Amino acid sequence: MKRLDHIVLWIKDPQASMDFYSRVVGLAPVRFAEFAAGEAPFPSVRVCEDSIINLLPMTNVSGTESFTKVVGSAGHPVNHVCLAMSRSEYEALDRRLQEQGVDTSARLHHSYGARGFAPQGFYFADPDGNVVEARYYE
């Protein structure tokens, strides 16, 4: 069985990103204490049991390119990451984002994804301008 293991987002401020993804979006921190102590190269947030989002500081661009041996590949934004959730989680996330002044007005209706058509979704930006889509399936 194939699964999506992780996605990498480039960030400027690890604390601000961790705060946004954990407190506002509601994802659990992974290795943030270890990162803060200098024991891990980057923190992550858990999307589900078997998927995480790695939050790589922009200061790691040259090291990442050296490691992957693909020059010019690091530091670029991804078009967007999509988080699927229950309808109640979706509505709660929308409320939390709006309370924090995050624009959620880019709305989707009947859009296709990994589990078929989702009745609703919306896009929002994180503190670094990475675009995230939230959606729910019936």
Results as ranks from 00 to 15, higher is better:
Gly63Glu: 07
Leu108Trp: 03
Glu65Asp: 12
Tyr21Gln: 08
Gly63Gln: 11
Glu138Ser: 04
Tyr21Met: 04
Gly113Lys: 14
Glu34Gly: 00
Ala118Asp: 08
His80Arg: 00
His109Pro: 06
Val102Thr: 12
Pro43Gly: 06
Glu91Cys: 09
His80Asn: 11
Pro14Ala: 03
Leu108Gln: 07
Met85Phe: 05
Ile11Ala: 04
Gln98Lys: 15
Ala84Lys: 13
Ser17His: 00
Tyr21Gly: 00
Val70Phe: 15
Cys48Tyr: 06
Ser17Lys: 03
Phe20Arg: 09
Asp94Tyr: 08
Ser105Pro: 06
Gly101Gln: 09
Val61Ser: 14
Asp126His: 04
Glu39Gly: 10
Ser22Trp: 00
Ala37Tyr: 07
Leu27Ser: 06
Ser66Trp: 05
Ala114Gln: 13
Ala106Ser: 09
Phe35Ile: 02
Arg135Ala: 11
Ala118Pro: 07
Thr64Glu: 15
Asp19Val: 05
Tyr90Ser: 00
Leu27Val: 03
Glu99Gln: 13
Ile53Pro: 03
Gly26Asn: 03
Gln120Phe: 03
Arg31Cys: 07
Arg87Leu: 03
His6Gln: 07
Arg23His: 12
Arg95Thr: 15
Arg107Met: 02
Gln100Phe: 10
Glu91Pro: 01
His76Ser: 08
Leu56Val: 14
Gly116Cys: 07
Gly129Ala: 02
Phe117Asn: 12
Tyr136Ala: 07
Phe67Val: 02
Pro127Met: 01
Val102Trp: 01
Val131Gly: 01
Asp94Thr: 13
Ser62Tyr: 12
Gly113Ala: 15
Glu89Pro: 08
Arg96Leu: 09
Pro41Gly: 09
Val47Ala: 10
Ile11Gly: 00
Ala84Leu: 10
Thr64Tyr: 14
Gly113Ser: 13
